[in-house]
Amino acid sequence: MKKPGLTFYKSAAVVLILIFVGLQISSPDIENQPVTSEIAVPANVKKILERACYDCHSNEAKVEWFDKIAPASFVVAHDVNEARSRFNFSEWDRNPAGVQELLLWEMVNAIEQGKMPLKRYQLAHPGGKVSESELAVLKKYVNTLPGRHKVDTSRIVAQTSVNHKASSQKTPVSLNGIPYSSDYKNWKIISVTDKLDGGSMRIVYGNDIMVKAIEKRELPFPDGARIVKVVWGKQAEDNDGNVLPGNFQNAQFMIKDSKKYSATEGWGFAKFDGLDLKPAGKTILFEQTCANCHRLLAPENDFVFNIPTK
């Protein structure tokens, strides 16, 4: 066989250089939009966020020279755009107060599980790591947020007003087509929880397929598995330390169908708010918000948080 000659290597090098130069020309720029409403947190917390998170999750990205070289620049631009779409510390007020708190708890969890900052970001930016003591600072901070010790002191309302009930006889349907159903009241309980962030207590039901899968230690869960989580506020603790459910807040559904819901890790998500069971979310994008957090933090559990595990 004839060995490739010098001309072959020369032309290969020219082609590679051309590709490289071409990539630089089409390389995306990271633009910093104005800071409109920056997050207000204590200085020690801010310092950690600025160092480890702001490069992607803010409009104050400090882009290094090596971040601008293609093909790396494409990865950087993708990560920054994705990060800003999840939450942006420079446009923090775009999130309602309750969502702001939930995002802060989610951040602590993402850092604790080593999911954030991204490994590839840490490789290129050695200062991007969050140390154990810094994580402790963040944990301490989220525990001071207003929702952490929220007590439901309002009178417990047992049903919607008669007028409302008459007008809401129709079955509520989530934007992605999942209807509310009270079948879960005949299912088994798979877990009971006390959610400290936001202050609520929950009972989680599983249908027969779900319960059998847990009994057989079958993961991922089979199609047809269904989970319903019923959420209440928490009443003030009594003298013996008991905390009882207050008002009904919402019911959250997860339905496994690996084909139908392939875009959200095989699970269909729905949430129905208040006693009149108003489907949550303004657009169908709501299900991506659910899936994003489940995907990030619970992949080991087939994306379900509320299952009994060792």
Binding site: V108, N109, E112, T193, K195, D197, L297, F305
Partner: peptide
Amino acid sequence: WKQKPMPQWYGTNMN
């Protein structure tokens, strides 16, 4: 049940 921290979410205790 005895409470235990939820493995996947710091901020929730479960059975």
